[in-house]
Each structure stands twice: as C-alpha cells, then as structure tokens.
Amino acid sequence: MTAAALLVGLLTAAGVFLVLRGSQLRLIIGFILLGHAVNVLLLSAGVLRWRVPAFADGGLDRADPLPQAFTLTAIVISFGITIYLLGLLRTGGAEASVIEPDPADDDGPTNRPTEVRDRDET
C-alpha cells in the first residue's frame, strides 16, 4: 500500500463521514475532502515513480503531465461548485428543518402520505 493510496483512503473516509453528517457546511467540507482524494488519486494514476516537474527540458523522470492537467481542471470545477454550495448556504434552504411549507401554496411537499389520499383508494 503506497502512501498516496493511504492518503486517498484517509481523505475519502473523512470526506464520506462528513458528507453523511447532516449539516450543510460539513457536507461542503466533506466534498472538498473527497475532491482532494480524487486529486491525489489522479496524480497517482500518473505513476508517482516520476516526480520531476514536467517542463520541456526536465530530462528523465519527469512526471506525467496529463494527470496534472486533469487535476487542475478538477480542482477548479470543484472550487466553482463549492462556491455555489456556499452561496446556497445563504439562502433560506439552509434552514430546511424549521421552515414549514407555505399553506397558501398548494404545491407543498408530498411527503406525508397519510394526508394525501388518492381517490382511487377510497
């Protein structure tokens, strides 16, 4: 088991744990950690035997640049989504459990089957 694999495992486990723990901010942080895990995974996919930065004149043992490019793209995308999720924190949705559906709006959630009976059944 390589150190990188252990890193992936550690970050994944911590990320999953936080994601599963309810609160919105922890969810976001969980996903940040999962993103890190994937980034480490991507770099290990490029074989960590070669660790010299991939410049044109780097000689032998230069790292595979492709996974690095992948990682960069992935980092930026997860950054964007993280920011968006943080933005959602600012909206009313963050206080999910305390907001009751507006009785005036007939489009309420249908998660109370006892209330919503189909006439077919009667």
Binding site: A4, A5, L6, G9, T12
Partner: peptide
C-alpha cells in the same frame, strides 16, 4: 466512511503505479 475509505485506498493501490 471507513469502508469506502478502505476501498478507495485499495483501489488506488491496486490500479495505479
């Protein structure tokens, strides 16, 4: 979480490098 972490680590170890 621990289970998924182990799988992730094992997957990375087995499928890369």
């Amino acid at each position: 979480a621990a289970g998924v972490g182990v799988i992730a680590a094992a997957g990375t170890a087995a499928l890369t490098g």
